[in-house]
Design a protein around this nucleic acid. Structure first.
Lengths: 175, 175
DNA sequence: TCGTTCACAGTTCGTTCCGTACTATACGTC
DNA sequence: GACGTATAGTACGGAACGAACTGTGAACGA
């Protein structure tokens, strides 16, 4: 029984727990990669989270770490029972904080910027995103244990399509 | 000429500058209120920003503060030329960081939570949001100098409609 | 007219988040 | 076996954040 510091679990914590739950176990780097093909699109985190958060979680007793043998001797994390419980309890609550949107572009328009150029690159960006997600989707489709990523990728694709529709509605192409 | 510390301007800084530009001048509390009816929907900030950020901006020479006479003797902020310039320069750049979406609910689903209840309250939330924004829109429509708020409110309404469509598409009501 | 209450206004503070910039390791290539 | 480079990982400071708290003034009843 190791004594574990009491830490506060934030949404970022649960994100890491959920990812590790899927992976079974993994290093920070693997976490980072998993983030990129799964939650990044609806729950953005900087890559340092994949290094910092597991350490925090381990100190709280939610993860165990074992050292890899060869090579870089990286730490491989996996959930403890306590971690699994905490994750399940959180996921089971049917409440969630409302979605947040951060749109620097709209902020610029609000500040008096011209919307035209911003919109143009925004459209391109959404199109690129859709392609990217469809690529990831192809890669993930027949891999075992990635059903959840698949679902979130699909949601992502629909989301970006809707955003394109929105842009068209609020600012019909002039020319 | 006061000496002013060199500070880094973040999107939050520009948010405050833009608001003050619209208001002409204002106290932190007025800023806070303005935030709630304007940028909060596409650029969320905690209310403490309305108190902390103006102080930071003033220390950097982008705002001036004068003391109110009676009552609480609150500080009333307004833009300096430097502040106006910085704001204009930022707004004129046609680039913006990509939009970010934070969806705790999707994170929960990803973590194995049931989507049903989450979706239900989400739909209700979007509907409420639409009503709220429409209310604000009515209030703002014929007020002078609120054209920008109006525009962003319209975008907000379309946004929430699109989100409702998205929910319907990815999770058609079962019963 | 004093005290109580309550909504409004503002502050404090510790933690978490975040991005930048940097360092280190493995592995291929010449 | 040095060199380059893609991959992997770290350090760190400042900003963002939210919880909890404090202060202020106006309304009201006693």
């Amino acid at each position: 029984m190791m004594k574990s510091k009491s830490i506060r679990l934030t949404p970022n914590s649960y994100a890491v727990l959920a990812l590790l739950d899927q992976l079974g176990e993994g290093t920070s780097y693997e976490l980072k990669q998993a983030i990129e093909v799964s939650i990044q699109n609806f729950w953005p985190v900087p890559h340092t989270t994949a290094y910092e958060e597991p350490a925090r979680l381990a100190s709280g007793g939610y993860l165990t770490a074992r050292q890899e043998e060869g090579g870089r001797r990286r730490r491989v994390y996996s959930l403890t029972d306590s971690g699994r419980e905490a994750l399940a309890a959180w996921a089971a609550e049917p409440t969630a904080s409302p979605p947040q949107l951060r749109e620097e572009a709209v902020l610029k328009v609000f500040a008096g910027g011209a919307s035209g150029p911003l919109l143009k690159s925004r459209v391109a960006w959404h199109l690129g995103k859709i392609e990217e997600l469809e690529g990831l989707l192809r890669g993930v489709r027949d891999a075992e244990g990635w059903e959840r990523s698949e679902r979130t990728l699909r949601v992502g694709i629909v989301y970006h399509r809707k955003m394109l529709e929105m842009i068209e509605e609020v600012a019909p192409p002039e020319d």
